[in-house]
Amino acid sequence: MVQKPYRILLTNDDGIDSPGLLAAAGALSALGEVTVVAPRRQQTSSGRSFSRDSDGIIEKCTLTANGRQFNGYAVGATPAQVVIHALQEILPGKPDLAVSGINFGENAGNCVTISGTMGAAFELASAGISCIAASLQLPPETANYYDHDQGIDFSSAAHFVAFFSRYLLEKGLPEGVDILKIEVPFRATPETNWRVTRLSRLRCFDAQVKRSGGWDSPARVDGKPMHLEPGQAEPGSDLQAIRVEGIVSVTPLNIDMTARIDLQSFEQSMRTGE
């Protein structure tokens, strides 16, 4: 009996030309048929946004990774929009698994809702598709999140993407989990330990404004990895795993943003506050 190959959708936020995307494509090709649909241009930190500036134009291309060729589609859109184009116009049916990444730079703590890598994953999870969002930490001193630094080695991260993708294809997502978020430290090897973590309550990146002149001059709000005091990252958190222990972090996420508190007693306390 011949089993139909698994169908895997691969996307990202760094764009169709990202070496991180190609590394994931190469690793995932051992597990099934991979279709790559990614933004035409860099879409870092676009979250799950739906920009009205997107043109939505789709261009076919051929990508090569690990000596194999893949059908690629470059879309003029944000990562969340790219997912909708992929599901409604490009793929023949619902994929068995979707992977977003591998991102240039970690996505940890309370900044995950800024990340385009995560934005694509939220959109996929909303559509009921099992999903992995994967990111590779960049060395904090030389981190460049925008320009596809060719010196970055994604092979260890690709190993972990394949490892957890195989699990999801065979077993599916656990009950109550919508996304597996994987962070790989920059020093990791395939032998590096991994751990299930929770999101840190800390910012992963501190915001800073880069402006050349007065307020009428162009400026960018940039993120730099936040300075962590010893003991500041919560034990068991994603930040602690990648920044302090140097191990791979696997965080189960849920798309429900409702605060995890007793809603009735919260309502009570608000009413007595009036």
Partner: peptide
């Protein structure tokens, strides 16, 4: 409608149980 929201999107599952499931089956 007044909904309290959180930035902590960690799934409401037993994390230790999830880790042992992943290790056993992976």
């Amino acid at each position: 409608s007044v909904t309290p929201l959180t930035l902590d999107l960690t799934a409401r599952v037993d994390l230790q149980q999830l880790e042992s499931d992943l290790r056993r089956k992976a």
